[in-house]
Amino acid sequence: MSLSPQDIQRLAQLSRLQFDDASADRLLGQLNGFFDIVEQMRAVNTDGVVPMAHPVDAMQGLHQAIADTDELGMTLRLREDVVSEPNQREANQRSAPAVERGLFLVPKVIE
């Protein structure tokens, strides 16, 4: 299955990107070139396979070094509810395009 010019427009909108017609055409060809090699993947039978979202998944119980898997970080580590971040506004906004009175300025947001 291959992408259409409409797909390119929809995805560009979704990604907040814009392409002139020429580059949109070139992009369409390149993406379809990529999705050609993706086809072989779709044919694979993956019934009953659990998707792998984190590489640590695969480490479960593999190593003596991994005494306590929770400790190791295979499940979410939780931190104590403590405030320790000082006000760094000046440093944090040093590379901001537009700031006024400590606020980031953007073109009017209409709700």
């Binding site: 980031f104 300025l105 073109p107 009017k108 947001v109």
Partner: peptide
């Protein structure tokens, strides 16, 4: 988003 005080712009407080 704070819409007041800025002409044609909004101020963002995070």
């Amino acid at each position: 988003s704070l819409h007041e005080d800025f002409i044609g712009q909004s101020g963002i407080d995070l």
